[in-house]
């Protein structure tokens, strides 16, 4: 492999990383939002969210990507590839994240909440200052797992013509007739990205020992 191929691979890796990163960032926050709204148990809205979570979790990424990319124009929405990819990945990951956040919310100590109420905190202040910091620590391992699943599932966005880290290996081997080296190189790059993510998990573990009272 020459420097030209490495450059192509890195370009593909960048595409994978930035599209995944944007989707993860929105998906983590959106997941928290969904979990919070579900906690309020608003009739109709709650059922709607349950439906969304079930569908999004059950749909293969490739199907979701294609669906969004192909359906948008029929509603008159001009959708570029990257936007469709981000939307699909976000809708998928937010559904899983919502369940992770909800678990952390439901298992949060009632005693700690009462202590917060007793000294005059409003529920929102209690959420922000007492619950959220601990929910992040508790949820991070699950969230990081989900992030790594998303990155590893991201080659699905190639179906709408995005040249990501997996797609670019096909292109290279189509020219060189040597499929193995670019694929191995791509695997290496995926591992580097995932390894960086897993460092977050170590941080969570380091903080979690305090919570085990």
């Amino acid at each position: 492999m020459n420097s030209q191929t490495w450059l192509l691979l890195l370009e593909g890796a960048w595409t994978t990383v930035w599209i995944s990163a944007v989707s993860i960032a929105i998906g983590v926050v959106l997941g928290l939002g969904i979990a919070l709204v579900r906690m309020l148990r608003i009739p109709f809205v709650d059922q709607l969210l349950v439906l969304y979570v079930s569908i999004a979790r059950a749909t293969p990424l490739v199907t979701l990507v294609l669906f969004i990319f192909l359906v948008a124009p029929t509603f008159g929405i001009v959708m570029n590839r990257n936007l469709a990819a981000i939307l699909a990945l976000t809708l998928n990951t937010a559904a899983f994240n919502a369940e992770i956040w909800r678990g952390a919310f439901l298992s949060f100590s009632k005693e700690q909440r009462e202590a917060a109420m007793a000294c005059g905190m409003t529920p929102w202040l209690c959420f922000r200052r007492i619950m959220l910091p601990q929910m992040i620590t508790v949820s991070l391992p699950g969230l990081v797992n989900e992030m790594s699943f998303l990155i590893k599932g991201s080659p699905a966005i190639a179906v709408i013509g995005i040249v990501d880290l997996t797609r670019v290996t096909n292109r290279i081997s189509a020219v060189t007739y040597e499929p193995l080296p670019p694929i191995l190189a791509a695997a290496l790059l995926y591992m580097v990205v995932i390894y960086a993510l897993i460092q977050l998990q170590a941080l969570a573990e380091w903080r979690a020992h305090r919570l085990a009272v």
Binding site: S109, Q112, A118, C119, Q134, R210
Partner: peptide, 17 residues
């Protein structure tokens, strides 16, 4: 109003973080 009372619980309920 609750802020004008102080409560001490059986299980302490300190915030561990």
């Amino acid at each position: 109003l609750r802020a004008r009372t102080g409560m001490v619980f059986q299980s302490f309920n300190l915030w561990p973080h």
